[in-house]
Design a protein around this nucleic acid. Sequence first.
DNA 1: ATAATTGT
DNA 2: ACAATTAT
Length: 60
Amino acid sequence: MSSGKRAVKVKTPNGKEMELVPEKAWALAPKGRKGVKIGLFKDPETGKYFRHKLPDDYPI
DNA sequence: ATAATTGT
DNA sequence: ACAATTAT
């Protein structure tokens, strides 16, 4: 559950725009506020993990 | 234990 | 400040 499904256009920490599937995806929102969705990605170029906002309609 | 991720 | 998550 809560794992990534579809690919997302993300900006890697090195500034490359690419489509990646998040290893994990979840909602990050305070109580009573809208918040955002966050994905955990691994840059295939460097192996570095990073987090990135997901589209609001991304399936969690 | 902390950083980092967004928007209110 | 607050929310969840997890690699570091």
